[in-house]
Write a protein that binds this DNA or RNA. Sequence first.
DNA 1: GAGGTGACTGCGA
DNA 2: CTCGCAGCCACCT
Length: 110
Amino acid sequence: MRNESFFDDVYEVVRQIPRGRVTSYGAIASYLGMVRSSRMVGYAMNAAHTTHHPVPAHRVVNRSGLLTGKHHFGTANLMQQLLENEGVKVEDDKVIDFKKLYWDPGVELG
DNA sequence: GAGGTGACTGCGA
DNA sequence: CTCGCAGCCACCT
């Protein structure tokens, strides 16, 4: 029951991301069948800031591992702090070993 | 009802 | 390697 909207689906997937892992907007979009609407995933993250649902948006980065949305965390270094706090090394606003830490919902969730 | 926006992605030069 | 352009679609005003 998604009374809220498709955003709720995005939040659910993002919450499934294990600690110390990261994924991309396209991966979530693809898992939800909205690979062509990857922008909407990012848009949903923006709305996540307004919902009451806890969404670890810091675990979601662009397909290059770049912290594109760090500017939306209030402070530019907060997103990197959270990632490093989980064991994810970040440098120059980019996730190191992004390929290794990459978490694909289409694979992990089936 | 219509127009504008965007936390993206892929491809070409 | 970097830079630019076009497509995409739900949400907001």
